[in-house]
Design a protein around this nucleic acid. Sequence first.
DNA 1: GATGAATGAGGGTTCATTCAT
DNA 2: AATGAATGAACCCTCATTCAT
Lengths: 219, 219, 219, 219
Amino acid sequence: MGAVKSARTGRRMPRAVRERQMLDAAVRIFARRGYRATSMEEIAERAGVSKPLVYLYLNSKEELFTACIRREAEALLAAVQSAVDPALPADRQLWAGLTAFFAHTARHPDGWSVLHRQARTHGEPFAGEVAALRDTIVAYVTGLVRAAAHEAGAARQEPELAERDVAGVAQVLVGAAESLAAWMTETGRVSEREAAATLMNVAWVGLGPLLRGERWAPR
Amino acid sequence: MGAVKSARTGRRMPRAVRERQMLDAAVRIFARRGYRATSMEEIAERAGVSKPLVYLYLNSKEELFTACIRREAEALLAAVQSAVDPALPADRQLWAGLTAFFAHTARHPDGWSVLHRQARTHGEPFAGEVAALRDTIVAYVTGLVRAAAHEAGAARQEPELAERDVAGVAQVLVGAAESLAAWMTETGRVSEREAAATLMNVAWVGLGPLLRGERWAPR
Amino acid sequence: MGAVKSARTGRRMPRAVRERQMLDAAVRIFARRGYRATSMEEIAERAGVSKPLVYLYLNSKEELFTACIRREAEALLAAVQSAVDPALPADRQLWAGLTAFFAHTARHPDGWSVLHRQARTHGEPFAGEVAALRDTIVAYVTGLVRAAAHEAGAARQEPELAERDVAGVAQVLVGAAESLAAWMTETGRVSEREAAATLMNVAWVGLGPLLRGERWAPR
Amino acid sequence: MGAVKSARTGRRMPRAVRERQMLDAAVRIFARRGYRATSMEEIAERAGVSKPLVYLYLNSKEELFTACIRREAEALLAAVQSAVDPALPADRQLWAGLTAFFAHTARHPDGWSVLHRQARTHGEPFAGEVAALRDTIVAYVTGLVRAAAHEAGAARQEPELAERDVAGVAQVLVGAAESLAAWMTETGRVSEREAAATLMNVAWVGLGPLLRGERWAPR
DNA sequence: GATGAATGAGGGTTCATTCAT
DNA sequence: AATGAATGAACCCTCATTCAT
């Protein structure tokens, strides 16, 4: 009825192209409806092919969803990594990475929704796929925070930050970044650079007192 | 299949009791399977009643899910609010609130999953219910951060924090807290107090340099 | 939701009164929704009693519907019969009967709908109940037509009408009357007297040529 | 139960054929059970297909019922129209039309039941479909009666019949015809030609006195 | 390389009916 | 005299998936 039909653009396309069309359609629909509410019928229709062809290429709904998750995870990781020059100082790397992250999620809201919302809400095996991605990112950010702390500390002759605190800052950074990205794509109220700047101010500027050993403790 | 059956504990209970049982069952199953993948049958079974009774009391799957969201939202808000003494200084309030938040989500992981994951993933009208809760919390946290900045600034004769930064810190706090809570309940790798302490260190301790006007800027 | 609830007018009423309320409610709802689409719930609600009470008094949906049919059939028959004075000439009796019939169906459209539409569309045992009523009426009308023909024929020294033609005229009369009654209650386009007059003109006035032996035959 | 199963005659048939089978089955069952009491399951079974296929081709119970009504209405209209030669005099046309009508309803009792009983009993949108058919037929019959009166009147130098009476006769004719058809198919007590002849005698032969201005009036 | 035809299985919802009080 | 609590059974509809061509 109201479904937008992609005009079936010429039959007989090479497999790689067809597959891409199917994944594009799938990501879009999974992102907007959720895994269970998405029907293979609708994906096939939007991809401009028949249902059996979707099965021929992607085997099952579960494998199709997994393929979507993998493709989007790789794309996101590639976007962030290619934006970061490992030769730069840690804070510049962090800035570049955050900017690339927010830019990518803003440009691919459906992909981000699949990763951040849909995959995590529908249990195994999908959640595991995303967990792996997240672990990679957390590890990378942890390295950056450690290096940043090291540089800053070295400059000011201060003791390095304890691993626990490094990990804590990294977790907060990643968690807040995810949250901001979702908020950005859903409400459009913040720009990519604003989001990145907010995080840099908290993470980087806030590192100073932590490096000097300040801690908050209940009393 | 493998579903655990609650031994039907005696027929003929007053409506209020039955309704509670149904909501308990529903929250648990919605949290684990997601809205669409949850069947009314399974909820009824777990609640120890027949499906028609669930419909008699809760009308429809959608209303049932909404009732779950509302109950869990109210419970979470009540837990946090009753933990906070408005007479205390802002940092103590923040600590108390965060601790209560993490304690509640740790004790009610299914409720938290319904609020944080499921409700937000399945569109309107569910997302709206949770958005209202989140707005309440963000407003409250913003107030605390502003007050905290005010106290700290006043003590040190420093200019107060700009509203933009207050809002940024609040957003990061709430986003990071949500993210940590989910991570906590999903992986069990951090304790409630650790989570709260990490956030206090970043938010509270890191407030210092921000108050002194330090900002990170790319160049 | 939108259902009109009769304010439960005082508990503890004599059985006969309660039963009447239930039948009233049932006729009304059966007439408007049809047998299958009517729920015992709605009847009970409209009657201002609980469902078990409906069962206590009327045993089952089927018996309840049958009771409605019988009550309405008896009422219709009584209305027609009490309007007819057997001492009058046949044409006056026919006129009185038709007028009473149209008046009754106009005043009790739900009852007429139950008899004419609902009961006949839902198979046995309901159709049989109405068939009995119809047979009674057809027999009565046949008698009137025969008598009318006799009077007219006797006056003009003409041969009486053959039984086949008498029966034919009676069938047409009854069929047309039913049809007009339904049309009247559904569209409201004709008055009771107009309907009766139309039928008298066809049946009575048209009797003349038939009595003189005129017939239409294909050639 | 007692359901007759059509031996599944070979799988894989072209859509048009299957659709016809489904409509055949549906008309039969709707006619006998009524709309609400008919289950899609039973229709599918009788059509020799699975339930989903019925939905694939006919979308919903409501659309299926509507499709039945339309098909039967068109078939009935076509049968009557093709039997009538507009070049013939009005009485011959009427006779041909009535004969065709009774013949068609006798040969397709289920179709007639769907049109006359079921569709009208189950409210909109079904009743509207049949009302359109009836209007067409009433208009056609009105034309015939008018023409017949004109011919007859012209021959005898008499004044034409008033429009009100023409309409009255047409309504009575159509109503009586419907009623006789239902009675015929339900009881089998009259033949098609007898039914048509009865109506011709009343309508055609009875037209004479009406043309001469005779009217019945109460007094 | 691609599809029209077809289905098993399951989910949301409703309803007539009963039991215990 | 009357009801709140409860359910077995069915029904409409959808969907992931396959077969035959």
